[in-house]
Write a protein that binds this DNA or RNA. Structure first.
Lengths: 139, 139
DNA sequence: GTATTTACTTGCAAAATGCAAGTAAATAGA
DNA sequence: TCTATTTACTTGCATTTTGCAAGTAAATAC
């Protein structure tokens, strides 16, 4: 279990204390953009996160209220990780990263999304946030 | 000198390969928000970056075209780090971090900035980018 | 009853970070 | 001109984090 140390009161530093690593936001990307929700699904992502790191990050995300964990209704051995309202506040950051990264390295699977972001960024953000909220509400 | 390894073509992962650590964006914050430009100034920031990490990150930022380095006109022993056009593309990300971090941890020195961001985010971004471009042009 | 799925934990090696001290050129002050 | 200080690092070593492979354990499928 990782204890987060805050180096200063600056919001940039504060943000990096949570999100400044190579894996945390990739898990949230999987949840936000690809509707992934289980350990196995996160593990299956192309970037190949190590099992111990994934367990650690999921734990930290849960501890700090970005996700919740509950056993699946259909299968007791399956755990469902769901993004919370706090997690949903990270949608703009993820979108900004898609925009930024795409400038230097185009990625065809996100071409339509990128186009939409360039036309109406706030609209896209709202749509994703509403979709995620609906999923939370559905339970 | 750090070689950046890209884990996948996903722009989020690509972005994190560059910026997914605790220090790189803090140096850029110092340049963008506080007009810092020397090794000593970065070292003086509240978060207390280690000298070897600072040297490494400045080197990496320079290697990848986010900053340039040149000796000061007034003092040969002084090196000036300047943000490039590529570095300036990170302004929206930094602003998003300010907005996000401030939600959970208010920080009075950025109160006015935050207010402005909430009223007219794109306007603030443009203003900062123009200010930085002007500084680049001035040399 | 046995194999597989799902979600981890454990142990150890490798890499990154943090801390303290040392270096070296340029400048400032006596 | 000699000495101290500023500026920008590098080096060495301890600590922490990450990565990889293997092991565990409950639930489910066959």
């Amino acid at each position: 279990m990782k204890e987060i140390k805050h180096r200063s009161d600056c919001p940039v530093s504060y943000t990096l204390d949570f999100l400044g690593d190579k894996w945390t936001l990739l898990i949230l990307r999987d949840m936000i953009l690809d509707d992934k929700s289980t350990y196995g699904e996160f593990l299956g992502s192309y970037e190949k996160i190590a099992t111990n790191i994934l367990a650690d990050r999921l734990n930290t995300l849960e501890t700090h209220g970005f996700v919740t964990k509950q056993t699946a209704t259909d299968k007791k051995s399956k755990l469902i990780y769901r993004i919370t309202e706090k997690g949903i506040t990270l949608v703009p950051m993820i979108m900004e990263m898609i925009i930024w990264g795409s400038q230097f390295h185009p990625y065809s699977p996100y071409e339509a999304l990128l186009q939409a972001l360039q036309t109406d960024k706030q609209g896209v953000i709202n749509k994703y946030q509403e979709k995620l909220r609906a999923a939370v509400a559905k339970g």
